[in-house]
Design a protein around this nucleic acid. Sequence first.
DNA 1: GGCATGCTTCGGCGCCGGTCGAAGTGTTCT
DNA 2: AGAACACTTCGACCGGCGCCGAAGCATGCC
Lengths: 233, 233
Amino acid sequence: MTTVNAMNLAEIGNLVGDLTRAQMLTALLDGRALTAGELAWCAGIMPQTASSHLAKLQAAGLLTMEKQGRHRYFRLSSPTVAAMLESMQVVCAVDAPRRIRPESRMDKDMRMARSCYDHLAGVLGVALADALTRQGAVDLTADGGVVTAQGRNMLGSFGIDVAGLADQKRCFCRPCLDWSERRHHIAGALGKGLADRLFQLGWIKRVRDSRVIRVTPEGQQGLKQTFAIDHPV
Amino acid sequence: MTTVNAMNLAEIGNLVGDLTRAQMLTALLDGRALTAGELAWCAGIMPQTASSHLAKLQAAGLLTMEKQGRHRYFRLSSPTVAAMLESMQVVCAVDAPRRIRPESRMDKDMRMARSCYDHLAGVLGVALADALTRQGAVDLTADGGVVTAQGRNMLGSFGIDVAGLADQKRCFCRPCLDWSERRHHIAGALGKGLADRLFQLGWIKRVRDSRVIRVTPEGQQGLKQTFAIDHPV
DNA sequence: GGCATGCTTCGGCGCCGGTCGAAGTGTTCT
DNA sequence: AGAACACTTCGACCGGCGCCGAAGCATGCC
C-alpha cells in the first residue's frame, strides 16, 4: 500500500488545513521572522493556543525557531515551504470554480504589488518580468529562465551582482506563477536580487503588518525611466 | 486583513489534510481516472463515505468527474493540482526531521521507478535525466531545461516528436524534484513524451493498482543500449 | 418487469482537535 | 529582589467532521 506517502501528504495538508495555522503561514510568507506573540495576534488567538500550533508546525519542519532574549522568532524553514504554499494558492486561484471575491482595499493593494517570500509579485512583479523580457535582459519561459549577456550588463549597471547571484546554491531564475495575475513573475536568486535592490534604492517599501508593497514617488519615476513601467498609484 | 488568502489556503489544506482524501489523491497522482468505487477501495472505506469526500474534492476544483454508464470516473482536474501535491510531498521528504521509514517492499519499488502524474520518477526517472544530460541531449538546471540541437536529433530518432511536444501550451521541459531521490527528473511535455514512448516500446509497464513502474527485460536491454542505464531488477 | 450494480443522500454516533483559563518557567528591567 | 513580560504546559470543554447503516436513485443485464 502506498499509505506512507498519503500519510505524509495528509500530515502536511492537515497542518496547513487549519485556518489559524494558515493565517500564521500566510503571515510568514514574506520571509520575515515573527515572534510567537505577533503570530498569535495575526491569527486572532490567545498566546497559549498559538504556542501549540507553532510547536506542531515546527515539529513537522515547516517552521524554524530562533530564541532571542525572551522572544521566539519563527520563520518558514526553507524556500521549499514557501514554494509549496504558493503552489497551493495557485490551485485555489486557478482551479476553484468562481466564488465570492470580497474585493477589499487590502486585496486590491495585494494584487497591485506584494512580496512573495523574498521576491516581488502582483502587477508590479509581472510588469518587471515583462519589462526585462521586452528589453532582452532575460529569457523567461514557463520552464525556467536565463539572463542574456546584455541582461548581465544591464542588471550590473543597475547595481545587481548577477554573477554573485548565479553562484548561489538556490535556483537562479525561476518563474513563479502569480496567483492574482495568473502569469509568471521572476523568482529565485535573481528575483530576490531585484527586490533587494529596489528596497535599497528606496523605490519600494513594505506596508506594516502585511505583504503589501508600496511604490514610492522615486520608485514611480525610476521604474519608468529604467524599465518603462508605468505603475499605478 | 489577508484572511481571504489564508482561507483559500486552509480550504485546500483541509481537503488534502484528511488521510482518506490524501489516499485518494495519491491514487490519482499518476494521472489516470478512477471510479468512485475504486477510490473507496484504495482508501479502505465504504462507498457512501467516499462519495462525500469526492463531492468535496470536486466542489473545490481539485477533481473533475466524468460519467460513463453507471460509473463515475474521477481524475485530478489539472497538472497544476498534481504539481501542488508533488510540492507537498517534497516538503515532507526534504524538510521533515527524519522519521521512521517502514521500508516496505512497495516503498522500495516506488523509489525504484514510478509514474509522477504523466512522467517518470524514482531512480529510473533520475537516471534518465542524468543520461540525457550526460549525452548532451538536454541541459537541465534547477530553474528549467532546454533540449539541444543534438538532443532533438537523438530524441527524434528514438521516436519522440520533439517539435510537436514543444508546441503544446504546457511547460516543455520542467525539472521536478524527486521526493525519494532528492534530485531532479524531467517533467513537462518532454517528460510525458519520454514516458509515453517507453510504454509504447514495451520497455516499462505499470503495476496494477499502484504508481509503481516495472522495467521489462526488453526495457532492461534497451535502456542499456540507448541510454547506458543499468537499471536494477 | 425484475434484479444486480454503482453511487448518492440522510441521520445518528463517536472522537479528534482547537480553544481558552489557570498555573508554571525563563528572561529582562528597575 | 521583585515585578513585568513572553511564552509554554496542563486540563477541561465542546463543536465539527469522518464514519457507517439504511434507504433512495440511476443504469445495465437477463
